[in-house]
């Protein structure tokens, strides 16, 4: 049957545009799959048995879900211990940076003192110094202190942050000065003003710094490689890399390890996407 629908037919350009949009939608899905493919394939392989991992041609999906690789990674590697070490290191560094950066940013934002500009510049200058330049002397310092293979070696060098101080200071400066003046008039000490007014107001900025610090510390590679060489003090990144460097490597086991070590940062990324983005773009936006 033919009904006169010509009037409702979309005109050709509109049709073309709709087709173009659908094509673009499809392309976006395909691109997402390509970008995520290495991770998805690693996840799928971590669930295969050893026999299937080494099968040729490789299979995209595991025929049977097998958690053996995860058990082996946690116990034999021993990734469980590495995870604990990394949590202790990253947790302590994050907490430490939040405290030292809050204190320093508070001084820069709320106290008028001689040499403020120069000191602030000094803090920013730490961002210009690549870690490689301080690597050898720091290693020698840690060795001289007898700190090799200890948590302090993994934590102490990172307890201050020029970036974090800058980030928090920028946020503190948006807190109205009248609030500070009012607090002083009310007989509120500087310390109480910081803890009861500034810190609660700055929670979003603190979250940004905290997530950024945790991600950066968790993913460290060169420094933990240098200052730790005993199995029980290793962090996850090094522990897993050395596991792979052994002969007769089981790729299924290594991929299970990869999934385990990216899990905490992936969770942080998914839950705190806004903060991750803000931390990364702070430099680009503020110039």
């Amino acid at each position: 049957m033919t009904r006169p629908i010509a009037g409702r037919l979309p005109r050709a350009p509109a049709l073309r545009r709709a087709a173009g949009r659908a094509g673009l939608d499809l392309a976006m899905v395909a691109i997402a799959l390509v970008v995520l493919f290495p991770l998805l394939f690693a996840l799928s392989t971590s669930l295969k048995t050893d026999v299937e991992v080494n099968q040729y041609p490789p299979s995209l999906w595991p025929h049977t879900i097998d958690l053996g690789n995860y058990v082996a990674a946690l116990q034999q590697a021993p990734l469980a211990r590495f995870l604990l070490n990394s949590f202790i290191q990253s947790g302590a560094v994050t907490l430490g940076q939040l405290v030292t950066a809050s204190l320093a940013a508070f001084a820069f934002a709320f106290i008028q003192f001689p040499g403020r500009q120069a000191l602030f510049f000094l803090f920013l200058a730490t961002l210009m110094i690549p870690g490689e330049v301080t690597l050898i002397p720091n290693y020698l310092t840690i060795k001289a202190l007898g700190w090799l293979n200890t948590y302090p070696a993994l934590i102490a060098p990172f307890l201050a942050t020029g970036f974090g101080t800058f980030l928090l200071r920028q946020f503190f400066l948006t807190i109205p000065r009248e609030l500070a003046d009012a607090a002083v008039i009310d007989g509120c000490s500087r310390r109480r003003f910081l803890w009861t007014i500034v810190i609660p107001l700055a929670r979003p900025a603190l979250a940004t710094l905290g997530i950024y610090a945790f991600l950066a510390t968790w993913n460290q590679y060169l420094w933990p490689l240098l200052v730790v060489n005993s199995t029980e003090m290793r962090t996850v990144q090094i522990g897993l890399a050395l596991l792979q460097a052994q002969e007769a490597v089981s790729w299924g086991l290594v991929m299970a390890g990869v999934i385990l070590i990216v899990l905490p940062t992936v969770l942080l990324f998914l839950l705190g996407y806004r903060h991750v983005v803000r931390g990364l773009t702070a430099g680009a936006v503020k110039g």
């Binding site: 970008v35 993913n219 590679y221 990144q237 070590i261 990216v262 940062t265 992936v266």
Partner: peptide, 8 residues
């Protein structure tokens, strides 16, 4: 997504 992935 690769922001959440370490270099190792």
């Amino acid at each position: 997504f690769t922001i959440a992935v370490s270099i190792a």
